[in-house]
Amino acid sequence: MQRVTLTIDDDLLAAIDAHGARHGYASRSEAVRDMLRASLGGTAAPAVGAQTGHCHATLSYLYDHEKRELARRLTQVQHGHHDLAVASLHVHLDHDTCLEVAVLRGPTAEVKALADSVTTQRGVRYGHLHILPEGDAKSQPEGNGKPAKHRHTHDHGHEHPHPHKSRSQARKAD
């Protein structure tokens, strides 16, 4: 770890101290490191800033559901990137506004491209992509460029069905 000396004005230092106290940081250094990570996209890890590597992400956005053809366009964009989607949440905030939150996983460049495709649609009022790197060896890409598949290394008394098959189809295949 490197030691860096910064010169900042009193008001900014007071804001940093207030932020640190509000969030319970043990030191200014910890508070400043987290603020820098957030400013740099969630982490200082090269895989997040680069167009390579895999990540986990959340994409949240507000949109006007009355905007002509917007819901259809958003659905088309999402179906075009179905392999990145893990889960999504749709909330009707009021008569005109919807909030969607999508949990994504995949190549960082593809996740960013999907987010850009969604948030630049006319009628999307606000969008934010929060990226976290895939950090452990279990989730690093296999030979096909996709994250390694989830594997159990212990027996906990039940089986897990194949994610793309119904339970009855999974039992028949076994």
Rank of each mutant, 00 (worst) to 15 (best):
H164F: 01
L40P: 00
A115S: 06
T43C: 07
A102V: 15
L36E: 07
G20H: 05
S117G: 06
P133I: 08
H156M: 04
L59Q: 06
A115M: 02
Y61H: 14
P163E: 05
G20N: 04
L40I: 02
H156T: 05
H128C: 11
H158N: 02
H56T: 15
V32T: 12
V77F: 02
K138G: 11
A31M: 03
R68K: 09
C55K: 08
L70H: 08
P147M: 09
L93M: 15
D155R: 12
G41T: 04
S27R: 02
V48K: 09
V32G: 07
H90Q: 10
K138T: 06
H56K: 08
R105D: 05
L132C: 15
R33N: 10
V111K: 02
T97W: 10
R73Y: 00
E30M: 02
S117Q: 09
G135H: 04
K112H: 05
A85Q: 09
A87T: 03
H150M: 11
V32P: 13
G41S: 03
E134F: 02
H152G: 04
S29A: 09
Y61K: 06
T108R: 14
G24N: 03
H152C: 04
E134K: 11
V48S: 07
E134G: 14
S39Q: 15
Y126H: 13
H92E: 01
E100D: 11
R151F: 00
D96H: 13
V103M: 15
H150P: 10
P161S: 11
R151G: 13
A18W: 03
C98W: 12
S27T: 14
H162S: 05
E159Q: 15
Q140S: 14
A26V: 01
A45D: 10
H54C: 03
C55A: 15
Y61I: 10
T43R: 03
S117W: 00
A85P: 02
S39N: 15
D155L: 07
N144R: 13
D34P: 05
A45Q: 10
V124W: 02
R151H: 07
R73A: 11
G127S: 07
R68C: 09
C98F: 12
H19A: 01
P141V: 10
R28W: 03
A26S: 12
H130C: 12
E134I: 10
E30Y: 00
A45L: 12
H23M: 08
G106E: 07
H81K: 02
H82P: 08
R122Q: 06
V91L: 14
R122D: 14
Q51F: 09
Q78Y: 00
R105M: 14
A47L: 09
A87M: 02
D96G: 13
A102S: 06
L132Q: 06
D155W: 15
G24F: 04
Y25I: 01
E159R: 11
Y63R: 06
N144V: 01
G41V: 06
Y61E: 12
V91D: 06
H160V: 13
E142V: 14
H19V: 03
L36K: 04
V48F: 03
H162K: 15
E110Q: 14
K67Y: 14
L70Y: 07
G127A: 07
H82A: 14
A87S: 10
V124I: 03
E30R: 08
G135C: 09
E134A: 15
L132P: 01
G41E: 03
R22T: 12
